[in-house]
């Protein structure tokens, strides 16, 4: 068995297990910690799949920035609130089982169809990652996808401003008092 296959079979159960464990945690903090484990295993998958730059980005952006944001909000809203995992809609479970089986069948058919696509084990690093993954990625990103890249930067700026405006606490006393004084 090739080394990357060994890595896959070691980390895939950890990844799926942490994802499922995340869903069945009553405590939001524990769910967030399981999600961090899941993000790290996915970073390992990127490494195995020939994307070392995405490996770094995954750990920095997801496990670093996004999860800190999540933990911050969970702490802000109070960690002691626990929710019940009981379903409330009637007849939801049998319907969900039927539809879930349908989805599983679709996934199975799709995976079977992709079996025929199997290619020879050509080396990704020699064909695409020439001169390094980050270099190859930047060649495509800054030449073919330059406009989407710039649009993404605008999106991030707008999102940051919107988050600030939304989460800002309105100063009732000063602003409205001033407005009433003018009236």
């Amino acid at each position: 068995m090739a080394p990357d296959q060994i890595v896959f079979w070691v980390f895939a159960p950890v990844s799926v297990g942490s994802a499922v464990a995340m869903l069945f945690q009553r405590n939001a903090i524990h769910a967030a910690l399981f999600l961090i484990v899941n993000f790290f295993t996915l970073a390992v998958f990127y490494l195995v799949l020939g994307a070392p730059f995405l490996f770094a980005v995954q750990i920095i952006v997801y496990a670093g920035a996004i999860m800190v944001l999540f933990l911050f909000v969970i702490m802000l809203l109070g960690v002691d609130r626990e929710e019940s995992l009981v379903e409330r809609l009637r007849g939801q479970r049998p319907l969900a089982i039927v539809l879930g089986l349908g989805l599983a069948a679709e996934i199975f058919v799709t995976a079977r169809a992709s079996l025929g696509l199997a290619r020879g084990p050509a080396n990704f690093d020699e064909t695409v990652n020439v001169g390094g993954n980050a270099q190859a990625l930047s060649h495509v990103l800054f030449r073919d996808y330059f406009l989407p890249f710039e649009v993404t930067s605008i999106l991030l700026i707008v999102a940051a401003i919107a988050a600030m405006v939304l989460a800002q606490r309105r100063e009732r006393t000063t602003v409205e008092a001033a407005g009433e004084a003018e009236v």
């Binding site: 995954q58 999540f70 990103l141």
Partner: peptide, 21 residues
């Protein structure tokens, strides 16, 4: 991989807005 990078950036923006909401 470029698209995965875009998805990560959009996800970061989405989480910021979502948590603010």
């Amino acid at each position: 991989q470029v698209f995965a990078l875009f998805v990560i950036a959009v996800a970061a923006a989405e989480v910021g807005i979502g948590l603010a909401i």
